[in-house]
Design a protein around this nucleic acid. Structure first.
Length: 371
DNA sequence: GAGTTTGAAACT
DNA sequence: CAGTTTCAAACTC
């Protein structure tokens, strides 16, 4: 649609930063956040390689390092030494591979032009923005539930984040030390755990040699009261059956268990219901989109309904841009999410009113000249 | 949402 | 290494 037509509808295309099909804004990271999510990059000789598992791992340069490196053994696979926060060549942070990936997938970035981090370092230089309220990490890899630790400072294996070799991020924990700001304490805690159990950070569920059938808990469970049919049981939670190494009492989590089969059937039925609901929503959404995208007039004359010709692709685009502009405004003024949603919905209402009003006028004009 | 149950982790 | 305590998640009401 021409701009004049847009003005006729009262829809002025706002200025929206656009990069191809995806519009994005880039949050500026406050210094304290920067400190946590973006460690000083490795030297220029450092490389970032992408493995077949889509995980990026940092490979330290082969050149001699100026510092004495800590000598920890039995660190999780893929552990690397990254420069410690605080600047300068003062030490290293031991970063299991999972932490490295998490650092790289942080939803916040700094603009390369304003950052002291060279883009070649491969860390925190790509814009990763929240999608539908989820961070990039949450949308591109397995979602992890936020922890709620209150007493462990997230530095014991009670904390799922720590146990999984991840920093706490968007968690509900109190007095959390599982971040780069408390690198010293975290390092000490990792060492303590590894002293106690050298395999503390290795996955508990071993990958079987011949597919899922051989997956089993590395230590086995010790359940006594749950029958191994509740999520208290680590085997059941991992959707695997208990094995001979388990020390559970009254186990019902085995192949032929009728209780287990009943639970499986119930779970399957629930899953089917969810899928059906999702399909119904998708279908409805598709029908709405189809309706809005129709370009042929429904009524040519005399009808009571408004012509769909006003809801053209261009009008839709302009409407979307108005909504995006409102979202941007809300973000820039640091509005809470609820207020942002209200602003966007209000703008949507205004857009609809303008479209309806213009369509009504056009219809009246059309009738007056018998078109 | 508060209280209870559970079993892994931590401690003795 | 066994028994006890602590802890956070799962679960129930």
């Amino acid at each position: 649609m021409r701009n004049s037509s847009l003005h006729q509808l009262g829809l002025t295309k706002p200025m929206v930063v656009s990069t191809g099909a995806v519009r994005m804004s880039v949050p500026i990271v406050p210094p304290q956040t920067m400190k946590q999510v973006a460690p000083k990059p490795l030297t220029s000789a450092a490389q970032v390689v992408t493995t077949t598992q889509t995980q990026q791992r940092l490979i330290m340069p082969a050149t001699p390092l100026p510092q004495i490196q800590p000598n920890f053994t039995n660190l999780p696979p893929g552990t690397v030494l990254a420069p410690a926060p605080g600047g300068g060549n003062v030490g290293y942070a031991v970063v299991p591979a999972q932490y490295v990936t998490q650092l790289q997938q942080s939803p916040f970035v700094t603009l390369a032009s304003s950052s002291s981090f060279p883009a070649s370092a491969g860390i925190q230089t790509q814009a990763r923005l929240p999608l539908n309220g989820l961070s990039a990490a949450e949308t591109t890899s397995r979602p992890r539930k936020p922890c709620n630790c209150t007493k462990s400072q997230c530095l014991k294996l009670y904390c799922d984040c720590f146990a999984n070799g991840e920093f706490c991020n968007n968690c509900n924990c109190n007095n959390c030390f599982n971040n780069l700001e408390h690198e010293t304490e975290r390092l000490k805690a990792i060492k303590t755990c590894l002293d106690r159990n050298p395999e503390a950070f290795k996955p508990k569920i071993g990958k079987g040699k011949e597919g899922e059938a051989d997956r089993r808990h590395s230590k086995g469970c010790n359940c006594k009261r749950s029958g191994c049919l509740k999520n208290y049981c680590e085997c059941y939670e991992a959707k695997i059956m208990c094995s001979s190494i388990c020390k559970c009492i009254g186990c019902k989590n085995f192949e032929e268990s009728p209780e287990r089969k009943t639970l499986m059937h119930l779970a399957d039925a629930a899953e089917v219901r969810v899928q059906q609901q999702t399909a119904a929503k998708t279908k409805l959404s598709s029908q709405i989109s189809d309706l809005l995208m129709r370009t042929t007039p429904v009524v040519s004359s005399g009808g009571g309904r408004l012509p769909y010709t006003f809801v053209t692709k261009e009008v839709l685009e302009a409407t979307c841009e108005c909504l995006l502009e409102q979202a941007k405004k809300a973000e820039q003024t640091h509005q809470p999410r609820a207020e942002a949603e209200r602003m966007i919905l209000e703008e949507f209402g205004h857009c609809l009113m303008r479209i309806i009003s213009s369509a009504g006028k056009a219809k009246a004009d059309c009738a007056s000249i018998n078109c």
